[in-house]
Design a protein around this nucleic acid. Structure first.
Length: 369
DNA sequence: AATACTGTCAACCGCCCCTAA
DNA sequence: CTTAGGGGCGGTTGACAGTAT
């Protein structure tokens, strides 16, 4: 007894999204906010499945997304987190707010997997190990597994401890503590729309914590975010209008530039089939569409700027150069923890727990990411 | 220059979980 | 308590671009 499809298969468009569709979706979300995806196709007139709309938004149109050119730091985080969490891309993505799970998944599958394999291969040859070629049998992966187990243990400890803390009789202390954390969090993540909840890391160890640092959650986006998104689209349209839809070979610098302006590459992506779009779209119509869109974006850019000024992380600074990321991302406790292979092993048993507990109060460290 | 091969990534599919009725 | 439906997630696919032969 299979479930009925989430939407009628007949008349549902598939394949790459056109700029017009993007605009329709973004303007709808700008007005109504993300969520209730089932209503989106009917309300917008988009001939798309609700899931497709959600996916397009979360993976592509959502503001604050950075594309391409993973930094070394991000790479390390992904590798580490993958070892820790497995293929839970959404969980991993919550640590890299500017990246989508899909992006991370793709990057893992296309780059990191091979990279690790290569490294493992060279490890094995250098170690002159026996012929065990399976990944799980390799020494390095057993080390990883060991780390993973240790961290899992740590997480369990953390969860228990935090739970105890939260449920402890000394409610006033906890209340203050939590309040402090939330105040700090709210100060730094103003308007993210994240509920102020006591940070009790339940079994999904860091996710509830990190959610507080998720700048734009699909269901928690703010008008400013929409503006930012509009800005994205507007700029995209602008460049799309300037450059013919025909995709030109992308140089590394171009890619950097693109990602630095946080340009979703959707238009270029869909350009081959959408090359006809520009021809099919009356120039004036598209122009006016663009300008109105652009205007609506500009009208709220100040709002976004205000928002960003309150937001130390500057998630919504659309034009943040990607190569500034590192400098803008001071090594946080979490990163230290992630990058420091030795820390965990030593910490699980002893004082290192304090460090890890500190991670639960990351809300106090405004500079995370 | 033509063809084959490989890499990349947006999008889809199907399953699972959560929640409201 | 049960169940239907929506949303989220991870795996996979397929189109396109780039590179090698």
């Amino acid at each position: 007894m299979g479930r009925p499809p989430c939407c009628d298969k007949i008349g549902v468009k598939k394949g790459p999204w056109t700029p017009e569709e993007d605009i329709m979706l973004v303007s709808y979300i700008q007005e109504h906010g993300p969520g209730n995806w089932r209503a989106v196709p009917t309300n917008t007139g988009l001939l798309r499945c609700s899931k497709s709309c959600r996916l397009r938004w979360t993976n592509y149109l959502r503001p604050g997304i950075r594309r391409g050119n993973f930094t070394e730091q991000e790479e390390k985080m992904i590798i580490h987190l993958q070892a820790l969490l497995g293929n839970r891309w959404a969980a991993i993505a919550s640590y890299l707010p500017q990246r989508t799970d899909n992006d991370i998944k793709n990057y893992w599958n296309t780059h990191l997997k091979k990279k690790l394999k290569r490294l493992q291969g060279s490890d094995e040859t250098s170690n002159n190990s026996d012929g065990g070629s399976s990944e799980s049998a390799s020494p390095s992966s057993s080390v990883l597994k060991g780390q993973w187990e240790k961290r899992l243990q740590t997480d369990v400890h953390m969860a228990k401890q935090a739970l105890n803390e939260a449920l402890s009789i000394d409610k006033s202390n906890n209340f203050n503590h939590i309040n402090n954390m939330n105040n700090t969090t709210n100060n730094n993540n103003t308007n993210f729309g994240v509920e102020s909840k006591p940070m009790i890391p339940i079994m999904k160890p860091m996710i509830p914590i990190m959610n507080q640092h998720q700048p734009i959650h699909p269901s928690t986006s703010t008008p400013a975010s929409y503006a930012s998104s509009c800005d994205n689209i507007a700029r995209l349209l602008q460049s799309w209008m300037k450059t013919p839809p025909k995709k030109s070979p992308q140089t590394a610098s171009e890619t950097t530039a693109q990602s630095s302006t946080n340009n979703p590459s959707g238009f270029t992506n869909s350009s081959p089939s959408e090359g006809t779009v520009s021809a099919a779209t009356p120039e004036g119509g598209f122009d006016s569409l663009f300008s109105s869109f652009n205007n609506s974006a500009m009208a709220t850019v100040d709002e976004a700027a205000n928002f960003s000024s309150n937001n130390e992380h500057g998630f919504l600074h659309e034009s943040k150069p990607s190569n500034n990321l590192d400098s803008q991302m001071p090594l946080s406790l979490l990163e230290k923890w992630l990058f420091d292979d030795n820390a965990t092993g030593a910490s699980v048993q002893g004082h290192g727990m304090d460090n890890l507990m500190d991670i639960t109060t990351l809300g106090e460290t405004a500079n995370l990411f």
